[in-house]
Design a protein around this nucleic acid. Structure first.
Lengths: 122, 122
DNA sequence: TGGTTAATTAACCGATAGGTAAAATATGGA
DNA sequence: TCCATATTTTACCTATCGGTTAATTAACCA
């Protein structure tokens, strides 16, 4: 039933509330109610609990008990995987710009040189 | 009603079919039916159309008419924005590892200590 | 003109997402 | 022991998601 990890991570990041929570957590650990504070006007505590569950399932945060509070902590690993996925294909989708760029240059200056960098096989 | 751009992009990337389509497009332009080919056993043409609409709305692809075919092309800009968002906070979430690392080091080398950094109030 | 192919739209479906209010649970402290 | 606080669970709601089939639109071609 469950999605692959990358999908879970991307989906978890696809919500502004959850991204804001992560940004907050990137400054340091925080309890659930500390995290909820900025959203209290807009949404209820159970809503935050649900968002945290989504983040937890994606491995983006971990929770630990500390008295009656739950301390939440960011976990960078899934973020690294997202970053890696994007960077892995970056050369390819950046290239389309290079090609367009080169094409435009050829059109305007009529320089038909070959052996340029960034030109991929056909 | 519509979400912010970053949310649209992350959500669009949160589906393995759509990521596969992007990976394919990172190798070069393709028509809808070319893109659909690898998924024909698993899903119908309208399903692909819908996925492409999601990608298009996120600005991840553009479509152009070419005879009876629609050529699809990847657009790197939203990917760059995602990448930038992650990299912008990278220093912070990477830091938690450094801190943990340091904490573990302190714990294993000298175990009593008060006034340690990272020990939070109660 | 009519037929074929490419792609989309329309209408529908079940599952999931994101929210709520109210009740339940867990813990520390008087 | 009882209360207050923090957090989660339950039950519910509506909207969106990801898929379907059937019908529709668009362009080429003979």
């Amino acid at each position: 039933m469950d999605q692959d990890k990358l999908s879970l991570t991307f989906s978890a990041l696809g919500d502004p509330t959850r991204r804001a929570i992560l940004v907050r957590l990137s400054m340091g650990e925080a309890s659930v109610s500390e995290l909820a504070k900025p959203f209290m006007k807009e949404m209820s505590a159970p809503a935050i609990t649900k968002h945290l569950k989504v983040l937890e399932k994606a491995g983006l945060i971990t929770k630990s008990r500390e008295a009656q509070w739950r301390q939440c902590k960011i976990n960078g690993e899934p973020l690294r995987e997202v970053s890696d996925w994007i960077e892995h294909y970056r050369v390819f989708w950046e290239e389309s710009f290079d090609r367009l760029d080169e094409y435009l240059k050829t059109m305007t200056t009529k320089t038909t040189k070959k052996g340029k960098k960034n030109v991929r096989k056909k």
